[in-house]
Amino acid sequence: MKRLLGTLVAWSVAWTVHPAASRAQEACPGDSVYTSAWEAMGTRFRLQVVAPDRTTAEAWAERAREEVERVDRLLSDYRSDSEWERLHRERSVVTDPELFGVLRHVDAIVAATGGLFDPSVGALMDAWGFRSGRFAVPSDSTLARLTAISGWNRIRFDAEERRLTLPSPPYRLDPGGFGKGYAADRVIGILVMLGANCALLDAGASTYRASAPPPGRAGWPARLPGSSSDGDGILLAHVALSTSGASGRSFVADGRTWGHLLDPRSGRPAGTGGVVHVLADTAFDADALSTALYVAGESSAPSILARFPGARARFVPGSSGWIAAPDP
């Protein structure tokens, strides 16, 4: 389906232009934007790409779908044939350089966020029912026990053999904090290699990854989910945007809403509502960082952002608009 750009940018809102969008305008392989959407990884992916014609756009979109499917077969905790589930079934596996590298990168983010981003909360996610959908508030003793057995530093990395070793069950890793972001990064990287250098991919509007903007524009328009005004938007170019909040998987019990973003220190849902938006170079980092900042809260954000050069965050509700690391 062909959509001319003019129809896309008819938003009656004040646009924030991300600094990266101000770089020199790059040539796109065409004038028209083509949109393709599909269901994957439990959400709705949408690719907008500038292409010379519909056939080319379809071939690029198919390549994008293939790559998301491939990443899903790597990281999915819902399909038994994924490499992720093989690791959890066998507990100690030699794996491919990709998964080893992905978890090494997670390792660096866990360290940089002081453990506020920690995917080893899988057993706690199960106890709250966030994976199965059978929600329940666990007892204090259950939370204490599962929090004690969790912890990223319990994974063993053997770089020489490329072996990953997990503690025994119920210890479990949750890929939710970076999987879709990694898929978005991979897709944009492949599209650039194919010559499709002007594109925006979003995974359920909670994760965006943009390459060069469409012709004549400063960036790709994206809506900031959960923002106060209905159409609060942003223009994205050469950047990723991730939003974390309790609005995704959550349930109501005991008179309050329990969101799926757990504080790894307590094993309990973090935050008191609202959302945090993060801009970073990659969707992987943006996804992980938005999760960590949601857990950390606004006051702790600058010190964490200091470990992620170029990243910025905005808390809604919040006091300070887009915030970045303090100048060194």
Binding site: E66, R86, T95, D96, E161, R163
Partner: peptide, 15 residues
């Protein structure tokens, strides 16, 4: 190509 790369990746998952 795509299938060859898939197979390389699979074999690299083996000790």
């Amino acid at each position: 190509g795509s299938r060859g790369q898939y197979l390389v990746n699979q074999f690299l998952r083996l000790p």
